[in-house]
Design a binder for these strands. Structure first.
Lengths: 137, 137
DNA sequence: ATTTGCACTTGCAAAACGCAAGTGCAAGAT
DNA sequence: ATCTTGCACTTGCGTTTTGCAAGTGCAAAT
């Protein structure tokens, strides 16, 4: 692992070279909600990622500077994962995916309420969340 | 093919179920630039997608209503692919990926110029591009 | 000293990917 | 009318990635 080869000079392509798969953005989503997660927290998510896939995604996300691993204050056996600024900067991407999904999928009431709230002030929400996550770094 | 199974009720997850891979968004990118592409046009892109992968991605993007296939006016042997409104609506996602990529990758002068132009009026650019692509439907 | 919890690893079968070559049909050239 | 070219895929096959289940290693609790 370590070197991710770029297929082209296109920034979209280079982005997908890092997190263009079915799982990476879900890990980032979890970290946007929770600020910090343990390995076990990710496994609890509804989509049920396999443990080996999780380990490999965490590895590339850390290698590419999108997340950081740090010690849990309570125990050496636990590990905390957090977003770096590079990861936090993916929030606008994630939000646009939410908005697109809102338009083309049937949402739970919970997701509906969340997005309704966000859309009252999209820029403001992104700014506030950015601040909130920045504090956790 | 046909049925894409949703891993969860999360709109991000459901979106990734459709186009969460290294190629689908590049096809959509090409269509945002070109309005309409033939099979051969996609193959010309810098990233060099394999022909079988292209065929399979075009199939799922069509099956999920993101693109449409239509006859080429010049010849029956050619096929034209275009974005549907559902596909056009992915433009904001694509643009945020561009912005993120701009911040974290080294860009060509061409991409730099493109993004500089876009950022002068992000909302306006998206609106204009939306209109332009809508006409092509 | 033993068990439990947490973060991974490992093994293996199944699916997806990537490359090269092949196929089928339409249109243009001879 | 026949032959060739162009275009849109399809097929075969070796390699890689995925997904599931079980296992490992270490720290902390009992």
């Amino acid at each position: 692992m370590a070197d991710i080869k770029k297929r082209s000079g296109c920034p979209v392509s280079s982005s997908l070279d890092i997190w263009g798969d079915k799982w990476s953005l879900l890990i980032i989503r979890d970290l946007m909600y929770a600020k910090q997660c343990t390995y076990g927290d990710f496994l609890k998510s509804e989509e049920k990622i396999a443990t080996n896939i999780l380990a490999s995604r965490l590895e590339t996300l850390e290698a590419t500077g999108i997340i950081t691993r740090l010690e849990h204050p309570d125990s050496k056996a636990k590990v905390l994962y957090k977003l770096t600024q590079k990861g936090i900067d993916m929030l606008p991407i994630l939000m646009e995916i939410y908005f697109w999904g809102e338009k083309y999928f049937v949402l739970s009431d919970q997701h509906k309420a969340f997005l309704k709230d966000v859309k009252k002030d999209k820029e403001g929400f992104i700014k506030r969340t950015n601040e909130k996550l920045k504090k956790a770094i």
